[in-house]
């Protein structure tokens, strides 16, 4: 559904879309990430799970260039070190932040419109609205309602929809299921799979490890700033250590 507009010229098919190496982040004197490395291939869902404070959100923020970091983040063959956050979005690497961060006083439509800030291809934009609304019928019903009056689940949909409006090659999702009713969680994961099927890669941070591992092609377990386990979703689901720590035994 979302055909990727950015043709990857720099990256050959075998090389990863996103490659993170030696990523280290300090908050003051506290080291939040201890030089982690991982790759995300073209059209993969990679889940990042772990306890609170393990550094999951920090990883996403560092990749989007929102916190100062050491180490290399290479996206589509280009090192992001000197790229400003707003231009990272332009390259097709888009984050939907935790806690939604939507504009409460703007309508659903205006929220989506803001994401097209850097785009000039107007006819395409109109089609993208239709796609987002196709993905989330609930948003279509409420397109003129202010973002602040949406329910939690709808706000989450809006945040993801907004991220999709900038036509990402890769989507960074920070706890999409947080604060959602079980039916909604199922719904959000259905949409995530759908987006993925259309060729967008996804890096997913989740506390709901059960759901995340079931939908991810690969997963990483982060503990106190280090990657302690990695494998396919199924492998980790079967791993007794992971089960004990993150799936509640």
């Amino acid at each position: 559904m979302f055909d990727s507009p950015h043709i990857s010229a720099a990256a050959s098919p075998a090389s990863p879309l996103l490659s993170v190496s030696g990523l280290t982040v300090f908050y003051g004197n506290i080291r939040a990430l201890h030089g982690i490395s991982f790759d995300v291939m073209e059209s993969e869902i990679v889940a990042l799970i772990g306890a609170n404070g393990a550094g999951k959100s920090t990883t996403l923020r560092a990749i989007s260039g929102l916190v100062p970091h050491k180490g290399d983040v290479v996206f589509g063959g280009r090192n992001l070190r000197r790229v400003r956050p707003e231009n990272i979005t332009g390259m097709g690497l888009v984050q939907a932040p935790e806690g939604r961060c939507i504009f409460h006083n703007l309508s659903v439509l205006e929220n989506l419109k803001l994401a097209t800030w850097q785009r000039r291809d107007n006819p395409q934009i109109t089609r993208d609205y239709e796609r987002v609304f196709g993905c989330f019928p609930r948003l279509a019903e409420r397109r003129h309602q202010p973002g602040g009056t949406l329910s939690g689940g709808e706000q989450q949909m809006l945040a993801i929809g907004r991220a999709l409006m900038s036509r990402p090659r890769m989507l960074l999702l920070d706890e999409p299921s947080m604060g959602l009713a079980p039916v909604m969680v199922t719904e959000i994961f259905r949409v995530i799979t759908e987006i993925h099927r259309d060729g967008t890669s996804i890096l997913l941070v989740e506390q709901n490890a059960n759901m995340a591992l079931r939908h991810a092609s690969r997963a990483l377990v982060l503990e106190t700033g280090l990657i302690t386990h990695r494998g396919t979703g199924a492998e980790l689901l079967g791993n007794p250590l992971v089960r004990e720590a993150y799936l509640g035994g």
Partner: peptide
Amino acid sequence: DEPAAGMNPREIK
């Protein structure tokens, strides 16, 4: 109000 939001199963326990 949603005390367990953003916690993993072990933390919920």
